[in-house]
Amino acid sequence: MLQHGEWECKLNTVGACAINTWPDVNDHFKFIHCVESLSDDGKYREWKTCFKKLKLDPKQVTECFTGELGHKLELQYADEIGALKPPHEYVPWVVVDGKPLKEDFANFVSYVCKAYKGSKVPQACVGLSLNQDSAKPFNNVCYKEDNNAKSKSKVSKSM
Rank of each mutant, 00 (worst) to 15 (best):
L69Q: 11
L69R: 10
L69M: 15
G70C: 09
G70H: 06
H71I: 12
L73A: 10
L73N: 11
E74R: 14
Q76D: 15
Q76A: 10
A78D: 03
A78G: 10
D79M: 06
E80T: 15
A83I: 12
L84V: 05
L84S: 06
K85I: 14
K85A: 15
P86K: 01
P86G: 08
P86N: 10
E89A: 15
Y90H: 05
Y90F: 13
P92H: 08
W93T: 03
W93F: 05
V94W: 02
V96Y: 00
D97N: 14
D97Q: 13
D97V: 13
D97P: 09
G98V: 04
K99N: 12
P100M: 10
E103S: 14
E103F: 09
A106V: 08
N107A: 13
F108S: 06
V109F: 03
S110Y: 04
A115R: 06
Y116N: 06
G118C: 07
G118F: 03
K120A: 09
K120G: 03
V121Y: 10
P122A: 07
Q123D: 10
L128V: 04
S129G: 04
L130F: 04
L130Q: 02
N131A: 11
Q132K: 04
D133G: 05
D133L: 04
S134K: 08
P137Y: 03
P137W: 04
P137S: 10
N139C: 15
N139R: 13
N140A: 14
N140W: 12
V141K: 08
K144S: 11
E145Y: 15
